[in-house]
Amino acid sequence: MNEPARPSRRRFFKAAGAAGVASAVPAAASAQQHAPAHAETYLFFNPAEAAFIEAAVARLIPKDETGPGAMEAGVPAYLDRQLAGAWGTGERLYRSGPWREGTPSQGYQLPFTPQELFRNAIRALNERHGDFVKLAPQEQDKFLDSLHSSKEDLGGVPASVFFESLLEATIEGFFSDPAHGGNRDMVAWKMIGFPGAYADFYELVDQHGLAYNSAPTSLAEDGRGRIHIHPVAHTGASSSAGGGRAPAKER
């Protein structure tokens, strides 16, 4: 609730109360702005896989009155890049056998890389439940809910393991830096009030209760320009381009 000490900072911070961090971005408007204008170019997903992923993530983190969802944030593009790259092929995954079913405490024990896990499971789902993408949102939610607790074998992958993997990766894509393909224009960070890669809070940490409304910073903003370019300019002080940085610290 503290006002900033210097007038020059007033344009960056406003007192809490009238508007919380979450409402600093006109959420519904942003959601419309960030809907993809054209279909993604996928490196890993085939069209049937992409259709399933797009439909599923749109329900896992839906667009609603709090703001854009996973689809608007570009989570399918994030998942596609991750699966096409090192993580998809088993980065940091110990892959020697023998393979045995373990206890929950022993963690992941399937022989599949993430590429294999997603591909096997989505193939089976599309074969058996191909109408998923066409269902009404409430029906899609019921189906996803059933997957969450299902032991159905999806090409060797238990349905619950696939669901957990998809949900975890969707949340990663929603909240990770836009440089990875999701969280487009930092929509998820703006929604919760996370400043992103910004590094200097020395002068602010003891301004207890401060309503920090400065725009977040992405890895892509190191002088080489923004990675995501949108034709419609943002409105509102909190998202004005380049205007949201906290001042340089004085030592």
Partner: peptide
């Protein structure tokens, strides 16, 4: 819930 609109609202509501 672990996902969906209610989850998202709770995250936004609780984060800061």
């Amino acid at each position: 819930p672990a996902w969906g609109s209610e989850w998202k609202k709770a995250v936004v509501r609780s984060y800061n």
